[in-house]
Amino acid sequence: MIKTIRRIPVAHYSNLKARTGYSIRLDDKEIALFKVSNGRVYALENRSPHPKGGVLSEGLVSGEYVYCPVYDWKISLVDGKVQEPDNGQVRTYKIEIEKDVVFIVL
């Protein structure tokens, strides 16, 4: 089988508000898209790794971190790592921006 890399356009960069999480469904995947204060954009699986964790797009964003809205775990948007004292990791997705279009790379 040939593994195909797919780029999916998901949003216009200029429409995204900073410090906000958007929830995006690509087929069966739910992805949280964040634009942070420094302008960078990140995409993560939209679920905290806490066993009863919440939907990340609704969490509070601080710098390059988001807090799980239900259990308050602090999660890095850059690599998806849960910060001490908790641990775990959320799947991250690569983002590419061309002209004004934000792509998620699957």
């Binding site: 797919r6 999916i8 356009p9 998901v10 949003a11 508000k17 906000t20 958007y22 929830s23 995006i24 469904r25 690509l26 087929d27 739910e30 699957l106």
Partner: peptide, 12 residues
Amino acid sequence: DKYYMTHIIKVG
């Protein structure tokens, strides 16, 4: 759009 929508995008 900011708080309540899930943006559904069909792939392929």
